[in-house]
Amino acid sequence: MKLILYFILIPALLPVFLILRYVYLLDRNEREPLGFVLKVVLFGAIFSIPCAGAERFLIAFISEYYDPATIEFAWMENTVGVALVEEFSKWLVLMLIVWKNKNFDFRYDGIVYAVSASLGFAALENILYIISYGTGVSIGRAIFAIPGHATFGVFMGYWLSRAKNFWLHGKLNRMRFCKLFSLCIPMLIHGAYDFLLSEQVSQLGYQSIFYIYVILLDFFAWRVIKHEFRTDRRL
């Protein structure tokens, strides 16, 4: 049992814990209840379970209209077939569990909860990857995949807080607009991330673009986090 813990759970969950701890401890105005944050993490993992089946269905559907060897197929596969499904599962957690919760009452809270849902998704995904491919994949996933999911969550939480603020002030059209952005922007960012890793892009010799993209994405996400906790205020 200890060996299983060491070889699977520790490399799978340690980067999740470190990122979540960093984001959580920045919340200095009115820190979120830890139990509720962990509940969001848990539901992020649970809601990820149906994603594989939904992804297979959508990718099969997309392949009816696009040649799998083309760059167009790669874009549709990674944005609609993968990113939309995965980001929607996280967004659904926030809509069902967080949106109307009394603890979601400060602007920075949106980032805390969206990153929590994203890291719950990433945690289960990471465990399954390590079980399937061994601990050799843990370093690469700790550097890229898990921070990637957290980054998508930053942008989701940013727009979700705006939506909640507009909702509380009765500006429903602006609320709907921001809610849509809270789903679509992470989907497009995530889709581009996976697209740049696709075999079709690799065959064109543009792999280096992926690393530039990740550096820029992480930089902007870090700037958003800093801005949100420094200017945090009650919704």
Score class of each variant (00 low, 15 high):
Ser138Asn: 04
Cys51Leu: 00
His149Met: 13
Glu55Leu: 05
Met175Arg: 15
Phe73Asp: 02
Leu26Phe: 12
Phe219Gln: 10
Leu20Thr: 14
Phe121Pro: 09
Leu119Ala: 06
Phe43Cys: 04
Val224Phe: 00
Phe73Lys: 12
Gly53Tyr: 13
Val201Ser: 02
Ile146His: 07
His190Trp: 10
Ala69Phe: 06
Asn78Ile: 04
Phe155Cys: 00
Thr151Arg: 06
Phe73Ile: 09
Ser138Arg: 11
Leu25Asp: 04
Leu42Thr: 15
Trp91Val: 01
Tyr6Asn: 03
Leu197Ala: 07
Leu26Met: 09
Met156Arg: 06
Ala150Asn: 07
Tyr133Trp: 03
Arg141Leu: 01
Arg234Gln: 10
Arg162Asn: 10
Ala54Gln: 11
Pro11Ser: 07
Leu197Lys: 15
Leu94Val: 11
Val16Ala: 07
Tyr65Gln: 09
Gly53Thr: 07
Phe121Ile: 08
Ile111Arg: 10
Phe106Thr: 00
Glu55Cys: 04
Asn173Glu: 13
Phe17Glu: 12
Phe144Pro: 04
Met187Leu: 09
Arg234Pro: 03
Met156Ser: 15
Phe181Lys: 14
Ala114Cys: 00
Leu34Ala: 13
Tyr113Gly: 03
Ala74Arg: 07
Trp99Glu: 01
Leu172Trp: 08
Ala69His: 08
Trp167Cys: 08
Tyr158Cys: 02
Tyr158Ser: 03
Glu125Arg: 02
Phe121Thr: 13
Ile46His: 06
Asp218Trp: 08
Leu42Glu: 03
Tyr211His: 12
Ile97Arg: 05
Phe57Arg: 02
Met76Thr: 02
Asn78Val: 02
Leu38Ile: 06
Ile97Ser: 03
Ser182Tyr: 10
Ile131Leu: 15
Phe181Met: 14
Asn103Lys: 15
Leu180Phe: 06
Glu30Phe: 09
Ala74Cys: 14
Arg230His: 11
Tyr108Asn: 06
Leu119His: 14
Arg176His: 11
Leu94Ala: 07
Pro147Trp: 10
Phe177Cys: 08
Ser202Phe: 06
Gln203Asp: 01
Tyr158Arg: 05
Glu32Asn: 13
Leu20Gly: 14
Ala145Tyr: 12
Pro33Asp: 00
Pro186Arg: 10
Trp159Cys: 10
Asn103Trp: 10
Tyr113Val: 08
Gly153Glu: 05
Ile46Asp: 02
Ala45Cys: 00
Glu55Gly: 11
Val93Arg: 08
Pro50Phe: 02
Ile146Lys: 14
Arg28Asn: 14
Phe121Lys: 12
Tyr129Gly: 04
Val224His: 03
Leu196Asn: 03
Glu64Trp: 05
Ile209Ser: 01
Phe229Thr: 15
Val154His: 09
Leu84Gly: 02
Cys51Asn: 13
Gln203Glu: 08
Val98Gln: 05
Lys171Trp: 09
Ser138Glu: 03
Lys2Thr: 10
Tyr113Thr: 13
Leu13Val: 14
Leu119Lys: 13
Leu34Gln: 14
Val40Asn: 04
Thr151Phe: 00
Ala117Thr: 06
Leu13Gln: 03
Asp194Phe: 07
Gly134Asp: 14
Leu172Lys: 11
Leu9Met: 05
Tyr206Arg: 04
Arg176Ile: 13
Phe106Leu: 00
Trp222Lys: 05
Val80Arg: 07
Tyr133Ile: 11
Lys2Ser: 11
Ala117Trp: 05
Arg174Pro: 07
Gly140Cys: 06
Pro33Ile: 12
Leu128Met: 09
Leu92Lys: 09
